[in-house]
Design a protein around this nucleic acid. Structure first.
Lengths: 335, 335
DNA sequence: TACCCTCGTGAAATCGATTACATGGAGGGC
DNA sequence: GCCCTCCATGTAATCGATTTCACGAGGGTA
């Protein structure tokens, strides 16, 4: 593959001049510039980003570590991050932690060795020494979707409190009294905050939530299924199960389907985190929608800001309730 | 950040020795090795992959360009590719072409500049000069999921012919006579082959398929919706619409829902490409399942083989039919 | 004792770009 | 006509690793 040296020789100039053309340095004559461009085309030259990065100490690359690439929420997030980064001339390297701390750390290490210019992490529930070290280091770092308690890292995330409060009121209005919540790990903001919001809203609406109605899942379909099963096996099972994310809702649907139960008559269902196909299930699922794409875009802006030396500020976006039919239809209840 | 030179100074050895330790070269005393490791830990040293790649002319990185990251099929594919690559010590950089030739080319260029060791491409329908050049070049290249006509590039893909034949027979057995197919672009193997298989199976089953029953979509939800709408508006609309991928099926569902029609009574539906939530729609959707993860893993093996100098052989995997209820229930039809 | 081989280690070249500094020529002011 | 300035370009150091080659010590053999 042609190197800058070959282009220089072909164009009859020095490598410095070719480099200047590559970086659109204005102090190059139009005539020389054209000759260099012609040489590049003739030799099919492609600049070596590896060499450039070594010299400039910048890779124009961002690392993104997501919880689970099979989760449509993270997919949409990743896409938004990539779009925003590309527009700014950055490449994104995605690492799929699969909600496992060791795999998250594997990608952190790899991305550090690759010398990414910044790191966006959706941290796993378990806080690792590596991530703690990162928080104290000077690589631009942003927590995405989730925060970890006691860590001074700027974050970009969604606050679901308002939407959860609205959802509980909606359930109450439909006449439901026994509502269970399958949340995420308490070490993650997305687990902790949603649980607190749910309990506060329940109490505000006069709902009694026994301890066994609040379960802790891991944001994967399997735990949604297992915990739904456990809830349905209670001596007094809930009338509604509210799942903490779309994958756990999928698991719950699997379990409900397996048991031959009907939604919402036998058991009502709601989910935090809306995905397109929720509109097409039987029945369509009431869910809390997050501004996922906006989340990703804002995170990139925060980290690019840090790269320009601006102070990083955390961002919190609101979620909204999308009422469908899985908790009972207003019309039907009114009868 | 600590460099190899710092580690060498701290351990009282030369940079060459540190490098040997890094690369587990056996000709280093256990005692020296331990001293070097201690120095690395003390300085929190992380090898600079950029410098290493410049020298070794290998990045241990693979590029993967997919059609659309929001499509669960590609997500699963990407995940499998990443898993298999990671096990072999490779990093994957994903580019989302969004089914657009210009964006595909953007990622090809970026990945070439980053000097990836190999490239896995799910090519867009439009063949670009850049991709043609690539096919003639010496960078290991594999086409994934799709092939392009007349290009000598090893590919790893699925053959749906058998499953499509089975599906058509299934439709015929349920009593359907008017079956429409929304396929993908004819320049892609996934479009061309599926159409041919469908037409052959239809004729074998004595079904008459008028030209207006065969539509060409672009594997995106929007075209599934638009083409479903067009089909439903025909003077003699089909009884069944068979969609060429899961996103077009989602679009079709949107249109059907908008019109207030019922599946399968008003219009039956089937999809090439199965996704988990097809089991949870109303009604569950009959689909052709692809061995998606296997596809991704095999592609990585082919390209890693080429990197080791082995000749690359194309791989073709079979798809299978998963009958659900969206084409009518056998039981019901029997009544 | 002389010779040679092996083994562990070090010095220095190298990968392909960027960039600080040097250089030479043109042009302008006096 | 001299000198200074500025501008376009070139020379060479540099980024952080790997790798070739050389070297010196130690051990075995004759």
């Amino acid at each position: 593959m042609a190197r800058i040296k070959d282009v220089a020789a072909y164009a009859g100039v020095s490598v410095a001049t070719v480099s200047r053309v590559l970086n659109s340095n204005p102090s190059v004559t139009a005539e020389t510039r054209d000759r260099v461009y012609a040489a590049m085309t003739a030799l099919n030259y492609r600049p070596n980003a590896v060499a450039r990065s070594l010299r400039t100490e910048a890779t124009r690359t961002l690392g993104l570590i997501i919880g689970d690439i099979l989760n449509p929420f993270f997919t949409e997030l990743a896409r938004a991050v990539e779009d925003e980064a590309r527009e700014a001339g950055y490449t994104v390297v995605i690492g799929n932690a699969d909600e496992r701390a060791d795999q998250q750390d594997h990608y952190v290490r790899t991305l550090l060795e690759q010398r990414v210019d910044g790191l966006l992490i959706c941290p796993t529930a378990e806080v690792t020494p590596l991530v703690e070290e990162l928080a104290g280091g000077d690589l631009p770092l942003v927590f995405l979707d989730r925060t970890l308690p006691g860590m001074e890292v700027p974050s970009v995330r969604v606050d679901g409190t308002g939407a959860i409060t609205e959802l509980v009121a909606h359930l109450r209005a439909l006449g439901h009294l026994r509502v269970a919540f399958v949340s995420g790990p308490g070490t993650l903001s997305t687990g902790r905050e949603r649980t607190e919001a749910f309990l506060a809203a329940a109490s505000a609406n006069g709902l009694d939530v026994p301890a066994e109605y609040v379960r802790v899942g891991d944001f994967r379909a399997g735990s949604g299924q297992a915990l739904t099963s456990a809830l349905l096996d209670l001596p007094e099972p809930p009338e509604v199960i509210f799942l903490g994310d779309n994958l756990m809702a999928l698991g719950a649907l699997d379990e409900i389907r397996k048991r031959g139960l009907r939604v919402p008559d036998d058991i009502a269902l709601a989910s935090f985190d809306d995905v397109p196909w929720f509109a097409h299930t039987h029945p369509p699922i009431t869910a809390i929608s997050q501004p996922t794409a906006e989340l990703g875009r804002r995170a990139v802006r925060v980290i690019l800001g840090r790269l320009r030396g601006e102070p990083a500020e955390s961002v919190v976006l609101p979620a909204v309730l999308t009422v469908r039919e899985s908790c009972g239809e207003a019309g039907r209840v009114a009868l």
